[in-house]
Design a protein around this nucleic acid. Sequence first.
DNA 1: CACCTCTTTTGACCTGCATCAAGGCAGAGC
DNA 2: GCTCTGCCTTGATGCAGGTCAAAAGAGGTG
Lengths: 243, 243
Amino acid sequence: MSQFDPSLATEACIQCPIRHRAVCASCEGDEIDRLAAMKSYRSWHAGETIVMEGAPLPFVGSVVTGCATLTRTMEDGRMQMVGLLMPSDFVGRPGRAAAAYEVVAATDLTLCLFKRDAFERMLRDTPHVGQRLLEMSLDELDAARDWMLVLGRKTAREKVATLLANILRRASTDTHPLRAELPLTREAMATYLGLTIETVSRQITGLRKAGLIALEGRRGIACPDLSALLIEAGDDEDGRLID
Amino acid sequence: MSQFDPSLATEACIQCPIRHRAVCASCEGDEIDRLAAMKSYRSWHAGETIVMEGAPLPFVGSVVTGCATLTRTMEDGRMQMVGLLMPSDFVGRPGRAAAAYEVVAATDLTLCLFKRDAFERMLRDTPHVGQRLLEMSLDELDAARDWMLVLGRKTAREKVATLLANILRRASTDTHPLRAELPLTREAMATYLGLTIETVSRQITGLRKAGLIALEGRRGIACPDLSALLIEAGDDEDGRLID
DNA sequence: CACCTCTTTTGACCTGCATCAAGGCAGAGC
DNA sequence: GCTCTGCCTTGATGCAGGTCAAAAGAGGTG
């Protein structure tokens, strides 16, 4: 775990804490200062574990840069990723001392952190922060439920297409063709999709051979026609973003 | 859709709205009256659709008696149940006019309802209701993520054992052997578990032949040893309740 | 460059669950 | 009671994706 230079935060932490700007549209001036005084930043390298499943988690916060994964593990070692956190996503759970999932940095990662007890006090004192957090939690719940459809009913090819399309849309810079760097290894993708690494690899190859995507090195991906990829994913063309 | 006699509500609606007692532990006396004045009750028969996916949903509320299902459907008809609502569970989404999922009465069902706009006003005026709702939403999110592990990684037998164990524990009256009435048809179970109806049936038969459960008619189920069933489910013995 | 390690791809084979197709059984209505 | 209808179970077969094994890249290091 390395130190993050807080002076970088002004630009990087656009939407923090919990989508700072959105929240603070209704903040008084000194509320912003109080929030700012409570923040700290911490960084991790790709692959580092932030908390283990069940371990105490004395902070909450949000992703500033990079990408983190939430994973549940069965006793025999089977693993399922249950969330993929991107910048501005919330980490941790007010009102609960232990992490329900393992949290791992998928890429190099910086979090904006609050001590949990201080954050809980803020929730009580500042209702609009609680309202914003409720809204975000309900969005997360919808995303989790959408992903249940992916896990329960989609074929391997549809699953991979769904994930790639989501990543492409999030990273979207409206270039043509659409490009993105995959924040996940093949193994992490398999863990997310309820597949094995071999199946993920085969399906990616299949999509490449069908001309739906192009690979640029190990992590780079390009997509000439997102709507074609979405059809392959079994979604209607304007299917919603899934976490 | 039939009318529910509000006079029955006093007993039945122990935890409504949004676990009324829990909320109202910190309510003033007249807050309770105001909440009560906003409520209404409505009942549905087993199998009736309450709202279709994407249709306008002008109310929110909570389950008083019975059991409802939340389901997402793909264009080609594949369906995945994404939530199973039991008494005291919350229905609907403040801040959103349309239902994200189809809601169906799995059994005969009574809901305690609030007009959505009135409820949203209450959320703004009564912060502890919002806090309670946040807490409930985070619990739902954990449950949804736990179910992702079931869908993504468990075998058919483990899935069925997981569902049956959850139902038995919810209905638990601490009798021995544990008994419950299944609120779901085989088809609904299949939709929940990401399986087909035939596979569900075969796995139930398998669990019965292994002596882990006994069937009592079509809907009745008994379990002589819950911890044995939980081991079959791939959980540790005190695995948590899953929605 | 050679060497090592880690990730990804590819191949061959197998199995768990889906699919297709009959039956069986319980409750409702006559 | 009989029959109809809607669930549920059972059987036979096929295939998608898992498993096991090996090879091919892609970095990193001396």
